[in-house]
Every structure is written in C-alpha cells, then in structure tokens.
C-alpha cells in the first residue's frame, strides 16, 4: 500500500511536468510510460498492475477526453513487460532503452486498436503513426537522461560510503 502511494505520488509529479504551460515542442516525453515500464520490470502482478491502472487513470484526468483509456493501455503495457521480465536482465540499462522504444510502439498500437474498435474517434490513428518516430526519439532521450541521473546518484552513494566516518561505510 505504501509502495503504491509513493508510485502514485511520483506519477502525479511526472504528470505535472508533462502538463507544464504551453511549449513549442512538437512532441513531449512520455514520462509515465517510462514509469510503467520500470514497474513492469520490478513489481508484482498485483501491486504493479494496480499502480499501472491508477497511473493511467491519473493521465486520463489531464489528457484527452476519455477516462480509463490510458488506464487500460498502461495495464496492458504493464502485463506485457511483466510477462517478459522474468526472462530478461532487468538491471541492464540497454534493456530499458529497448523496452521504451518497443513500449512506445506497443502503446501506439494499443491506442489505435482501442480507437478503432471501442470508440468512435477514428482520426487518431494517422496522428499516432505520424508521431511515432519523433515520440520514440523523445522518449529515448528522456530514458537516457533518466539513466544518467540514476548513474550519478549511484556513483554519489558509492563515494559517500567510501568516505571515512560515513554512516554508509561497510554496507553493500
């Protein structure tokens, strides 16, 4: 429950970053997608699935006009990553990059499927296909930035643990 709360709080902050005042960007990084993929690599079916569904609903509150659309898409995306996670090396940074690229495509295909079969909004498919290369590139840049941040943070922690008198000293 506590874990779910923190994930949702992080999701809210990422959503806030995505909705910042109008920019001239043609495409913006899909930060929640990155979070859902990370959940798929590390969380259990129940916790991660619930988090993915709630993150999608959170996204729908600030995007588009159909509540539950991203809830469904993020849940399916989470299940796909979770099903593969046991056969993959989840610690590899390259894996995250690959998953973000394929995840962006998978998300677009799921959206096209839902728009085509469940709703009457049929003008999105062309937009999704046209946007995919740029969206994938932008998401890739966001993932690289995220991995660099994680790298800096880890190195900082290691340096801190080696310092004499550090509380972290001796810990793995």
């Amino acid at each position: 429950m506590k874990k779910l709360f923190w994930v949702l709080l992080l999701g809210f902050l990422l959503l806030f970053l995505e909705t910042l005042p109008p920019s001239r960007l043609a495409c913006k990084p899909d930060l929640l997608l990155l979070l859902v993929i990370s959940l798929g690599l590390r969380q259990t079916w129940l916790t991660g699935g619930t988090a993915a569904l709630l993150l999608g609903i959170l996204r729908d509150c600030m995007s588009g006009s159909e509540l539950g659309l991203h809830g469904l898409v993020f849940l399916l995306l989470f299940f796909t990553v979770r099903a593969m996670a046991e056969h993959l090396n989840s610690e590899s940074p390259l894996l995250l990059v690959f998953l973000v690229l394929t995840g962006t495509l998978w998300q677009s295909l799921l959206l096209i499927f839902i728009f085509a079969f469940l709703t009457e909004a049929n003008g999105y498919w062309a937009l999704l296909l046209r946007q995919y290369p740029l969206q994938a590139l932008v998401n890739l840049a966001a993932t690289t930035a995220f991995l660099m941040l994680v790298g800096f943070w880890r190195r900082g922690r290691q340096r801190g643990s080696r310092r004499p008198g550090s509380l972290l000293r001796g810990r793995p």
Binding site: T19, S23, A26, K28, D30, L32, S63, S65, L128, Q131
Partner: peptide, 12 residues
C-alpha cells in the same frame, strides 16, 4: 491558459 495536455496525442 495555465497548462496543456499531458500527452502529445491529444489537443487540450
């Protein structure tokens, strides 16, 4: 106008 859509797909 204080914010825009959270995704690149929709225009709100």
């Amino acid at each position: 106008v204080i914010g825009e859509d959270a995704s690149s797909l929709f225009r709100t």
